[in-house]
Amino acid sequence: MNETLLLIIEWTIKGGLLAFGLATGFAYTTFYERKWAARLQIRIGPNRTGPGGWLQPAADGLKLFFKEEFTPANAYKFAFNLAPVLTMVPAIVIMAVIPWGTQIDFFGRIIPLGISNELNVGVLFLLSVASVSVYGIVLAGWSSNNKYAMLGGLRSTAQMISYELALGLSFIGPIMLAGSLNMAEIIRAQQQGVWYVVYLPLAAVVFYIAALAEVNRSPFDMPEAEQELTAGYHTEYSGMKFSLFFMGEYIKMIAVSAICATLFFGGFDGPFVNTYPLLGPLYLGIKIFISLGLMIWIRATMPRLRYDRLMAFGWKVMLPLSLFNVVWAAAVIVFFNVR
C-alpha cells in the first residue's frame, strides 16, 4: 500500500516535471530557432523583451492566450476543436518512453530517471503514438472548410504514407543490434559497446531525414507551405488552438531529437554518467540541443521539396535505403559479433 502510494507520487512528480520541461522546452525552442536563424541570416533576433530577449517566449505565449479564438462559420466544430489536441498530446506522450538517465538514490529510495524506461515494447509504442498526430493535421485541414487548409491536410497524408515506412525500418537496425525493443536496453547495449551511429551511420541519416518529414520541418514542410498554401492546415486557426499546433510541432522536434539521440547516439550516455547519474539528463539535453540546431540550420538553408518529389524520394530512395540498412545491421551483427 505504502509502496503503491509512493510510486504514484513518484510518477506524478516525474510526469509533471516532464510536462513542465517540455512546455518550457517548446517555448525556448522557438526562442532558440529565432536567435539561431537570426545569426545565420545576419539579423539580431528578438532582443527587447527581458535581458537579451529571454522573456520573448513568455510574451508570445501571453499574446496567444489573449488572442481571439476564431472559428470559421462553416467549419465542422467538433473536429476543428479536436485537431489541435490530437496533434499536441502524442508529441508529449512519446517522451514518456525516453530514458533521461540511469537511476538515482533519493534518501534510500531508488528512482529510475525516466517515466517508463523499461517498457518492453518501447520502440513500438513510440512509433504508434507518433503516427497518431497526423490525424490532427488531416482533421484540421478537412474541418476548417478552407481550400488551402484542405490541400495542406491532403499533402500531409501523402507525406505520412511515404515516410512512416522508412522511419519504421530505420528503427530496426538499433533494435537488431540491441536485441530488444526496450529503450533502456538499447542504451545499455550502446554503453557497453559503442554508439550505434558508428555501426549504422546510414540508418542514422535515413532516420534523421524521415524524422524531419515526420515533424513537418523544412525541407519537408509541405503541409504548411506558407508560400503556396498561405499557412496550410492551420490557416484558419488562431489564438491558443493555433499555439497548440505550434507546440505540437516543436515538442515533436524535441521528441524526435531525443529518439535520435537514444537510438544512435547513446541517449543519456556520456563520460561519468554511471558515477553521477544526474549528468544523464544534461547529456541528453545537449544532444537534443545540437539536433535542434541542425534542424534550424537546415530550415534556414534549404528550399522546400515539391510534395510529389517528396513521395518519389520517400518510396524510391528512402525505402530501399532503409531496407538495405536492415541487411547492413545483420551483417554488422555477424562480422563484429555485436551481440
Partner: peptide, 16 residues
C-alpha cells in the same frame, strides 16, 4: 524567388 521556394536566408543576404 528564394523565399517562394522557402530558401529563407538568401532573402536577407540579398537585401544586405
Amino acid at each position: 524567388h528564394g523565399l517562394d521556394l522557402a530558401a529563407m536566408s538568401i532573402f536577407l543576404y540579398c537585401f544586405r
